[in-house]
Design a protein around this nucleic acid. Structure first.
Lengths: 215, 215
DNA sequence: TAGATTGTTAATCGATTAACAATC
DNA sequence: TAGATTGTTAATCGATTAACAATC
C-alpha cells in the first residue's frame, strides 16, 4: 500500500478545520459545502477539498459534507480519539497555565503530573494535578504511560531535561523553551516559540508603519 | 521605489536566524559563512543567502557575514531596535507567565500593565507590573502609548475585548484565545493557538505509531 | 594572485488554484 | 431528471534549491 506523505502545510490547517466544524456543530449546522466553509474561513474551496481528499472522500456530490461526520473524521486523523497521557516539566506560571486549561482533556490529552526542581512546590497541586520532584520522573513516565512532555522551563535547563526525558522513554516533547532541542529521530518535537511569534508581530508593525507613515 | 512583498515564510525564519546569531555572538564568534550557519541550523545555505538578500547584501564575498552586524541588521528588520509598549489582557496564569518573562524587555517589548475583570486582583502586581481593572483601559492605552495587547482570555470574552481594544486604538493584538479575531485591516493580529499546536503533535504521534507498529 | 564565499539568475520542486467530469 | 457540489486532474503560482559569475 502506497503511503503518500502529507505536507506540513496541510497538517497545520487541519486543527483549524476541526475548530470551525466544532463551532458549526454547536450551532446545530448539519451539513456544509466547501464553498460555504471557504467563505467562513477565508480559504479557497478548492484548498479545502484538496486538503480533505488527502485523507479520503468525506463528502458527497450535490450535498457537501456532513458536519458531525467530518468533525469526527478529522478528529481521528489528528489522533484525538485516543488518550494521550501528558506531564508538564516546569511548575511556573506557564506550566500552571497549561495545567489549568481544561479543554485539553476534552481532546484526549490528560495531564497526569507536573514536575519541578523547586522543593517549595513539593506536595502542592494545580487543579488536582500533583506537583512532583524530579526523583519520581522515571517511574512516573513508566507507570503512568506518559507519551508527551510539555517543556516549560528556562532554556538553560531545557537541554538536560530533554536528555533525561528521552532516556526515560518519552515519545513526544511539546517545547516552550527558546531553543531547538536535539533528540533522536523517534522522539517527536513540536515547538512553541513565543518570542519568535512576538517578533513576527513586531516585524508586521514595523512594516505597516513604514507603508503608512503618520502625517 | 519598488517595494517587493516579503513572503510569510521568510519572516517566520528571521527570528530563528536572529536567535542563532545571538548565540554565536555570545560564544564570541565574529564571522560566519552561509555554509557554516546552514549546517548548524539545518537549512540550506542557498536559502539563508536568498532570505537575507530580500533585505540587502549583508555579507561579503570570500568572507561571509559579520555576526554582530548581521544580528543587528536582522534586529532592525524585525523592529527590535524600537520600543514597543504592551499590555496584557487577562491576569490568569498565562498572562502572568508572559508578565514574568523578562527577556521581552531585552527585545524592546515593555509590558506596562495587566488588565483583568476580577476585582480580587485589583491593586496586585506581577514583577512590579500593576494589575488594572478595565475602567482604566482607554486612558491607559492613550497615556502610555500602548501598541500591542496580548490577549490571554477565554474565547468567550475575547471577542468583546477585541472590539474594545480596537475602539481604543490598539495597533496590534497578540492573540492567545482559541478564536479567529475579527479586526479592521489596520489592526495586526498574531495568533498563538496552543491547542492547535498540540493537535499537530498528536497527528505526528499518531502517524508515527502507524508507521512503526510495536511488535 | 588564488581561494573562498557571496549575490543573483536559472532550474526544480511543491503547493495552491482553476476547471470540469463524475455523481449524488 | 436537473441542480449542486464533490473528487480529481491540469494549470498556475510561489518557494526552494542549484549553479555560477562577481568580487572580496
Amino acid at each position: 500500500m502506497e503511503e503518500r506523505e502529507i505536507s506540513k502545510a496541510v497538517i497545520k490547517r487541519l486543527p483549524r478545520y476541526y475548530r470551525y466544524l466544532g463551532e458549526l456543530m454547536e450551532n446545530g449546522v448539519e451539513r456544509i459545502s466547501s464553498g460555504e466553509l471557504s467563505s467562513r474561513m477565508s480559504v479557497t474551496a478548492s484548498q479545502i477539498r484538496q486538503d480533505l481528499n488527502n485523507f479520503g472522500g468525506f463528502g458527497q456530490q450535490g450535498y457537501g459534507y456532513n458536519v458531525k461526520y467530518l468533525y469526527e473524521e478529522i478528529g481521528k486523523i489528528l489522533g484525538l480519539d485516543k488518550k494521550h497521557n501528558m506531564i508538564i516539566i516546569g511548575g511556573g506560571n506557564l506550566g500552571q497555565a497549561l495545567a489549568n486549561y481544561v479543554d485539553f482533556e476534552k481532546r484526549g490529552f490528560y495531564i497526569k503530573g507536573i514536575f519541578d526542581v523547586n522543593p517549595v512546590l513539593k506536595g502542592l497541586s494545580v487543579r488536582g494535578i500533583p506537583i512532583h520532584m524530579l526523583d519520581d520522573l522515571e517511574s512516573f513516565i513508566r507507570d503512568e504511560q506518559i507519551q508527551i512532555a510539555a517543556l516549560t522551563l528556562p532554556k538553560s535547563k531545557a537541554e538536560e531535561m530533554t536528555a533525561l526525558l528521552v532516556k526515560y522513554g518519552i515519545k513526544a516533547i511539546w517545547n516552550f523553551a527558546h531553543i531547538d532541542l536535539d533528540v533522536p529521530s523517534d522522539v517527536l518535537v513540536e515547538n512553541v516559540h513565543l518570542s519568535e511569534s512576538l517578533m513576527q508581530l513586531s516585524y508586521n508593525i514595523t512594516r505597516y508603519e513604514k507603508e503608512h507613515p503618520r502625517s
